[in-house]
Simulated assay, not measured.
Amino acid sequence: MSEDFVRLEHVFYKYEEEDNFAVEDVTFSVRKGEWLALVGHNGSGKSTLAKLLNGLLFPESGLIKIGHFALSETTIWEIRKQVGMVFQNPDNQFVGATVQDDVAFGLENHGVPHEEMVKRVEDALREVGMTDYALHEPARLSGGQKQRVAIAGVLALQPDVIILDEATSMLDPRGRAEVMATIRNLREREEITVISITHDLDEVLYADRVIVMNEGKRFKEGTPQEIFEAPEEMKRIGLGVPFIVELEEKLSERGIQIDEPILSEGALLELLWRLNSNN
């Protein structure tokens, strides 16, 4: 993961009805195959960044580069071939009568030949564990299943980058876990770059690196462990901390020594088992 595949340099963007910049002088890069989480409260600029990265918006100034292409009106379609987006509400993304029809929709728009289209649909549904639901109506699926179908539709287009724009915010805990496991497994098998835009700090723990946005600016950057080493700083800008980190704080307050931050369910379960065994 040494090659920078996504790059933003001094990007500014302001909505017409707003006085302040939604995104102000933001610079960062994402390596090929990396998982980057962009977090922040509502109005922090993270969702605007998602739209800028996919060319739904154009920056007022600054550079956005995906692969070999700098974003412009002449390169927009090349950019969109490389970037797939999974949005907040999966119902808004469905257009087909069946799951397989829906996954095929984007391929039809791109003029993919029929035989290749069939193979890509089958491969994408298998990747997200939805092969058995190919002929089901999307409306009859659970929230987690719907979002996995939306991911399959993106995967069938074979993008280099997947952007998750609050993709789990409308799901229950089980559906959220299903989607995160799907993305994690895909990323382990394929060299797909993942950018997750979220305010769910538990989701941040899946990422390699985190950028915290505040008032349109890059507030802090680091690994999940580095970001949550100072929980009070996160709370000061209106963000909490993941449940696991909060539990660690409570245990420390009770005098229970923890040698290093707990950032996974496995580590948490191991700690609780040890504490129970010692008692």
Score class of each variant (00 low, 15 high):
Arg148Lys: 11
Arg148Pro: 08
Val149Asp: 05
Ile151Gln: 02
Ala152Glu: 03
Gly153Cys: 12
Gly153Phe: 14
Gly153Ala: 13
Pro159Ser: 07
Pro159Gly: 11
Asp160Asn: 11
Leu164Arg: 00
Asp165Asn: 00
Thr168Gln: 10
Met170Gln: 11
Leu171Ala: 03
Asp172Val: 08
Ala177Lys: 12
Ala177His: 14
Glu178Ile: 14
Val179Arg: 05
Val179Lys: 03
Met180Trp: 05
Ile192Asn: 11
Ile192Arg: 12
Thr193Ser: 09
Ser196Trp: 11
Ser196Glu: 09
Thr198Gln: 02
Thr198Phe: 02
His199Asp: 05
Leu201Ser: 01
Asp202Leu: 08
Asp202His: 12
Asp202Lys: 10
Glu203Thr: 07
Leu205Pro: 09
Asp208Phe: 13
Arg209Glu: 14
Val210Phe: 06
Val210Gln: 07
Val210Leu: 11
Val212Glu: 02
Met213Gly: 07
Met213His: 07
Asn214Ser: 15
Asn214Tyr: 12
Asn214Val: 11
Gly216Trp: 13
Phe219Asp: 01
Phe219Arg: 02
Phe219Val: 09
Glu221Ile: 15
Thr223Val: 13
Pro224Phe: 09
Glu226Gln: 05
Ile227Leu: 00
Phe228Asp: 09
Phe228Asn: 09
Phe228His: 02
Glu229Ile: 14
Pro231Tyr: 03
Glu232Asp: 04
Arg236Ala: 15
Arg236Tyr: 08
Ile237Thr: 01
Gly238Asp: 07
Gly240Leu: 02
Val241Leu: 04
Val241Asp: 05
Val241Trp: 06
Val241Ile: 12
Pro242Val: 05
Pro242Tyr: 00
Ile244Lys: 03
Val245Tyr: 05
Glu246Ala: 05
Leu247Glu: 02
Glu248Met: 11
